[in-house]
């Protein structure tokens, strides 16, 4: 059973579900490591492509897991990967919400809130570093920094527009 792809998906994504503090972006580095380097399910190019699709499509960024499951084992893989990633964290959130809602102003609750935030930020930065490692061109870096600049200074521009312009800019560089 060691090579069963469905079992593999569960083994990889359930733990990630429970440590994805700060959202799906925080486990990109870990997923890249598991999916590309450790298990060799996809090569770097394929992983980068799925990352792009997961960002271009609607929904939370963690649909990346759904796509990895789809590539590996079709519909069943997509369903198993999605459930493995969403059910554990949702159950945890559900439980904590019910238990802690009454203790919102307690000290331990605030310490937890403030203590976990920097961990999440650090993980997302690690994700950015690992994506840059996969892309590895100055053009990509320029587009990323330009997009970040537009988002910061023109907050009203819709995200979809910025992502589309990024794709078109890259296409123009390719054709040039």
């Amino acid at each position: 059973m060691r090579d069963d792809p469905l079992l593999g998906l569960v083994m990889v994504f359930v733990p990630f579900s429970l440590i994805s503090i700060g959202g799906g972006a925080s486990i990109i580095a870990g997923m890249e490591n598991q999916v590309v380097t450790a298990r060799g399910w996809l090569n770097a190019q394929q992983f980068l492509e799925l990352f792009a699709i997961s960002r271009a499509a609607p929904g939370p960024g963690v649909m990346l897991a759904t796509l990895v499951g789809w590539k590996l084992a079709g519909w069943l893989g997509a369903i198993v990967a999605s459930l493995a990633l969403f059910v554990p964290s949702s159950l945890l959130c559900y439980t904590v919400f019910r238990v802690s809602n009454a203790h919102r102003d307690k000290r331990w609750h605030r310490a937890m809130r403030e203590g976990l935030a920097p961990v999440g930020t650090g993980l997302i930065i690690a994700g950015v570093i690992s994506i840059f490692g996969l892309m590895g061109t100055w053009q990509a870096g320029t587009i990323a920094v330009a997009a970040a600049g537009v988002l910061s200074f023109l907050p009203r521009v819709p995200t979809l527009v910025i992502i589309s312009i990024g794709g078109m800019a890259s296409l123009m560089i390719y054709n040039f």
């Binding site: 994506i131 587009i143 997009a147 970040a148 988002l151 589309s164 990024g166 794709g167 560089i173």
Partner: peptide, 22 residues
């Protein structure tokens, strides 16, 4: 692939903004 690389790069820009706020 070129277009998708651009999309990925721009999407990374969104993450950079989140990092910056954090």
């Amino acid at each position: 692939e070129a277009a998708l690389a651009g999309v990925a790069a721009a999407a990374t820009g969104l993450l950079i903004v989140i990092c910056w706020h954090g």
